[in-house]
């Protein structure tokens, strides 16, 4: 009775899925669609590992009710590379050693993408503010900030 069919647009592709009303977007992405690039960790909006872009804005997929994502556009880390080419942010993260264990990386990159989409040439302070909701437990923040800065400068 309670299960319902919803339509989702993930990385430009349409899906029809059946969800429990209490299911969150992160579980639908990972378990139903097999898109495990989005990580799940704290389930309380503290770590940012599950960050996705929903209608142009970053949100926690672990705190987004699946039915609330119905009919909206979702971008996950899998949607950044195109035609076998990495996204410039992904390349910059590699070139600047912007990750260590990699667990925070998808969320970090999506927060960075949302920032650069809105503000192509941010100051270091603006970059720090934009990724304040993404925790890196390896604490490699400097390289992450350098990667985002480099990507913004390259686009100049």
């Amino acid at each position: 009775m309670a299960r319902r069919k919803i339509r989702l647009t993930v990385n430009g592709r349409g899906y029809q899925v059946e969800v429990e009303p209490t299911q969150t977007l992160v579980d639908v992405l990972r378990d139903t669609l097999g898109l495990t690039g989005t990580k799940v960790n704290c389930r309380m909006g503290e770590c940012g590992a599950c960050t996705v872009i929903l209608d142009g804005r970053t949100v926690h997929a672990c705190l987004t009710l699946a039915p609330h994502a119905a009919g909206r556009k979702i971008v996950t880390i899998e949607g950044l590379a195109s035609g076998g080419e990495l996204h410039p942010l992904q390349r910059a993260f590699i070139e600047h050693y912007g990750f260590q264990c990699g667990f925070c990386t998808p969320g970090m990159i999506l927060s960075a993408k949302a920032l650069l989409d809105e503000n192509p040439h941010p100051t270091p302070a603006e970059i720090k503010r934009a990724i304040a909701g993404n925790l890196c437990r390896c604490t490699g923040y400097h390289q992450i900030i350098e990667a985002i800065e480099a990507c913004a400068n390259a686009a100049r």
């Binding site: 209490t22 389930r43 309380m44 705190l63 987004t64 009710l65 039915p67």
Partner: peptide, 26 residues
């Protein structure tokens, strides 16, 4: 009632609250 879900879903994820019905006003 559920709107953004920030408070409610955290409580549900931690099983501190198990609503029988969600009324979305989003």
């Amino acid at each position: 009632l559920i709107a953004g879900g920030l408070a409610l879903i955290i409580l549900m994820n931690h099983r501190l609250l198990q609503p029988t019905c969600l009324i979305s006003i989003r």
